[in-house]
Design a protein around this nucleic acid. Structure first.
Lengths: 208, 208
DNA sequence: CTGCAAAGTTGCAGAGACTGCAAAAAGCTG
DNA sequence: CAGCTTTTTGCAGTCTCTGCAACTTTGCAG
């Protein structure tokens, strides 16, 4: 009875993961990240502490809601983009799609995360530490699409630029939430696209 | 008797820090990063474990040899560049100067680090996690130089691009050490300078 | 429905990173 | 030497994270 949809098992797993992520974010926003123990998070999600670590390799990962399928999903998106689209553009679309999807389905969580990250900016950087594997995967996809050997700098730089863009965008978003996170990421990627050699004009918040 | 040079205290501190860094790198290269405990590192450097944590906030920091003065030093370099030099160029020079200086004074350590990072690429990413503060400092310097408000994306993106360039360069260097690390960083920064929107030509290893 | 296999959960014991505190040691200065 | 500041150290304790083995839940086929 294993419909393509989801087995009971899969549904439960998804719920547990979501509960743990949610508990981590909520409690951290409430009391501060390091005044919350994994034990408390697990209790809040109604599982044992040991189970927490079956889902997330670290507290950091849980805070950011690390998704093991994100890397593969984005890689697929990059490869699936229509011909004639540049690797940069394909990657850019993949990033933006991922972000709008995330904000669409869990905007409330991101608002709480923003609180936590405002207090502890280093957590954002740390959260990306576990994504080394995903970056590799994505870089390979970009390389394939660009017809470059895996040793070339370009693919790695592009995906590294992507996470840098995301990080900077979140930081700015946290400081001034009148702007949409998606737009900020878009702006950052645009700058990376045209190059940083010259300083961009200083017409902030001008007419759209 | 406090000559502008260095007091005995300062000299000892410097030596202890260097010994800890060196012990961390050497033992990690020898046995693998997580088969080395802080206790062993401290013993190797002839200090107590508690002293290790007076110098480095984490094992990660010790492996990479985190230097508390690096941020300020680079910020100063950026601000001290002659007028007429673009912020990008000033930053680029600061990065390259730092790297050649480092390789000049401790090439052997970097060769060992390369071994460790080949086994555990995620450590490179993690090592940067503690540099959030430094990045902020540097971004402010770049902003000042560029005459931009601290809220602008450009300065943050530039310094983020810098660490991305460094990370990617080290990764490539680890995979193929016929190339000079400094050149790889330079190449990466050049790509960020001209923009990632178009795929660069594929003439690897062509005539210098 | 029943029994079996696969997948997931749990508790436990333990290693090891890291912190706060206060005492001891070492370097500095008059 | 005496007094002061900085550094080192030991110790107790908290917390993250892991391996292991028992136990429970789900999926499935007879």
């Amino acid at each position: 009875m294993n419909q393509p949809g989801e087995s009971l098992r899969d549904r439960k797993k998804r719920r547990t993961r979501a509960a743990l992520e949610r508990a981590t974010v909520r409690l951290s926003a409430e009391r501060g990240y390091d005044h919350v123990t994994v034990e408390e998070i697990a209790a809040e999600a109604d599982v044992s502490m040991r189970t927490f670590f079956n889902y997330f390799a670290s507290k950091d990962e849980a805070l950011i809601g690390a998704d093991p399928e994100l890397g593969p999903r984005m890689a697929e998106r990059v490869l699936a983009a229509p011909d004639g689209v540049t690797p940069f553009e394909a990657y850019r679309q993949a990033v933006l799609a991922e972000i709008t999807g995330e904000l669409d389905s869990a905007r409330d969580l991101w608002l709480l995360r923003k609180e936590v990250l405002t207090q502890r900016p280093d957590l954002l950087l740390r959260a990306f530490a576990s994504s080394a594997e995903s970056e590799q995967l994505l870089a390979d996809a970009v390389a394939q699409r660009a017809g470059l050997p895996g040793t070339h700098a370009y693919p790695r730089l592009l995906v590294a630029a992507g996470s840098a863009a995301f990080r900077c965008a979140v930081t700015r978003w946290a400081a001034d939430d009148t702007l949409a996170l998606g737009d900020l990421v878009g702006e950052a990627l645009a700058l990376f696209g045209t190059g940083l050699a010259h300083v961009p004009h200083h017409d902030e918040g001008g007419p759209s």
